[in-house]
Design a protein around this nucleic acid. Sequence first.
DNA 1: CGCACGTCAACCCT
DNA 2: TAGGGTTGACGTGC
Length: 233
Amino acid sequence: MREKRRWRKTDIAAEFSHPLPWRKIEAEGLDCDYALLFSKDEADRLFKQLEEEVEYFTEEKAQVRVFGKLHSIPRKQATYGEPGLMYSFSGVQHLARPWTPTLDYIRDAVTEATGRTFNFVLVNRYKDGHDHIGEHRDDEKELDPGCPIASVSLGAARDFVFRHREARGPGPRRHIDPVKLELAHGSLLLMNQPTNTHWYHSLPARKRILSPRVNLTFRRIVSQGQKEQRPSQ
DNA sequence: CGCACGTCAACCCT
DNA sequence: TAGGGTTGACGTGC
C-alpha cells in the first residue's frame, strides 16, 4: 500500500501473478485497506500450523483488574518478533519470542502485499464467540507512528467495529456512525495513520460462533535509542 | 510530585 | 442475543 517504493523483479512477478483487490475503508480520520491475502486452502493450512506452534501466555499473566476485581482476559495472547524486543500492553511488559516458521511465512506475505516490514506480532486467540476484546486503540508509544498495523485473520469470521473517540461513552460530543466490517478467514486489514488516534476498535462477543479465530497484528516497534537518534522511516 | 485522566470486563436491563 | 449503561483501582502523563 505504500506508494513510493523501489520495485524489484520478485515484487513485479508477485504483483502480476497475484494482484490483490484492495477495498478502501474511509471515514473522518479513519483510513484502512482490506483484502483477502490467502486462499481458503492456504488459510486452512496456516491456521492449523499456528494452532500447533503458538505458545500463549498462561492465565495468571493474562489477568486484568476492573472495578477492583481481577478477571482473566476473555482470549489468549502471545508475542513474537525480533529477539529482545519488549512490548507493554494492559500494564504488563512482554518479551517477544523468536519468530516461528509459520509466523515468518505470514509476515513475509504481508510485506509482499504491502511493501512494509514488521519486527513484532501480537497473537490473539478467540476460542469461540464468547471470547472478545473491548474498545481500545493501539496507541502504545513504542509503536512506529509511520507504520500501519497489519491485522491477519484466520479461522472463524468475526465482526469488527470501529467507533470514533468523540462518539462513544455517556454524553458523546458528536454523532458519528460506527464503521463495521467482517474479518474473513485469510483476510488482511491494514490500519493506516491516523486511524488509531481518532478511532477505537473492538471485537464484540458473538454467541452463535462456536469455532476459534486467531488474529495476528504485525507492528513496527521503535526502540527508545532509535527514537532519540532520528524520527525514523 | 500531586492530581487528572483513561482504562479494562462483567453484570443488568431493554 | 445484541447493545448500552454502570461499577473503581491503578498506571501514566502533565
